[in-house]
């Protein structure tokens, strides 16, 4: 189980990277942490012919917070750095809460947050977190820069809106109002495994009623997905166990996850409902409480 041969590029600047992508992007994959890419290489599952190692490209390894509280994470920031970032904990508490669920420590030490998003594994946590938080994904290429809303980014199983010549440069999580609470809940078979079903949810409660709600599930289909029917059901009502139970029913109805060796469709639908109730009650409890 050894990596196939590939042409290896190690650019040292963003411009170089983008020209490379313009030239060979069709046959190339970006190598950042490699924790998702390298296993598929070793298994020789449709490996790319060229790898562009961006580890020496400056300017991609920062976490910044804007004056309005938006948190931006660069393409080379590792999960472990995000996990330990005080800024992320304060300004993007749901992202911070998600980190310990991602693989194991050794994986988080190497893997990058943006890389996980670009990989778009439907069982991974971060694409769902992006959806739940309406994150903005910035793609750059020699053609310029474009900001892609998370809702338009994840197109299919390991498929994104990124063009072959584009690099996912950063992700920006919007400011987190003090009226919001979030939760990342999942059930996995073993500690650290991909979830059987997981939920990233955020709830904004103003004047005692739900002003906005987002429920983004992972491990339920070919991409992470929001369940707008359930979200609509929540908005305008007072948070309560009964409300959440009803939302859970809507979720179980709406989702139709494919079966695999770890769980049947019926099981995953059920679990999505259970997690809806758990997630919403945790999110409610978390309102105004920094992570």
């Amino acid at each position: 189980m050894k990596n196939p041969a590939f042409i290896y590029h190690r650019p040292v600047g963003l411009d170089e990277t983008l020209s490379l992508l313009a030239d060979v992007g069709h046959d190339a994959k970006i190598l950042a942490g490699g924790q998702s890419l390298l296993p598929t290489m070793a298994l020789r599952l449709g490996p790319p012919e060229q790898l562009i190692d961006i580890s020496r490209v400056p300017g991609l390894d920062g976490i910044s917070v804007s004056a309005t509280g938006e948190v931006t994470v660069g393409a080379l920031v590792r999960h472990a750095t995000v996990e330990h970032s005080a800024d992320v904990g304060r300004y993007a508490p749901l992202v911070a809460e998600t980190m310990p669920y991602i693989g194991h420590r050794a994986i988080r030490n190497r893997g990058t947050l943006v890389g996980s998003i670009a990989h778009a594994d439907p069982a991974a946590e971060l694409p769902a977190v992006c959806l739940a938080l309406n994150a903005t994904l910035r793609a750059v290429s020699t053609d310029g820069t474009r900001d892609i809303p998370a809702a338009e980014f994840f197109e299919g199983y390991l498929q994104t809106a990124l063009k072959p010549n584009e690099l996912l440069q950063q992700v920006t999580f919007p400011a987190w109002p003090s009226t919001s609470g979030g939760a990342l809940v999942e059930v996995s078979r073993r500690h650290g495994d991909y979830a059987l079903v997981g939920l990233a949810c955020a709830l904004d409660v103003r004047d005692g009623v739900v002003a906005s709600a987002s429920l983004a599930f992972f491990s339920v289909g070919s991409t992470a997905q929001r369940v707008s029917e359930a979200e609509a059901h929540l908005v305008g009502s007072e948070p309560s166990a009964e409300l959440f139970a009803r939302a859970a029913e809507v979720v179980s109805e709406a989702l139709n996850p494919a079966p695999d060796v770890h769980g049947t469709t019926a099981y995953r639908k059920h679990l999505a409902g259970v997690l809806t109730e758990r997630g919403l009650s945790q999110a409610t409890a978390a309102i105004g409480v920094p992570a």
């Binding site: 078979r189 059987l196 770890h262 019926a266 099981y267 059920h270």
Partner: peptide
Amino acid sequence: LPPSRILELAGII
């Protein structure tokens, strides 16, 4: 007895 089997046995799914 994976989790889905447990819930089947319990009559929950």
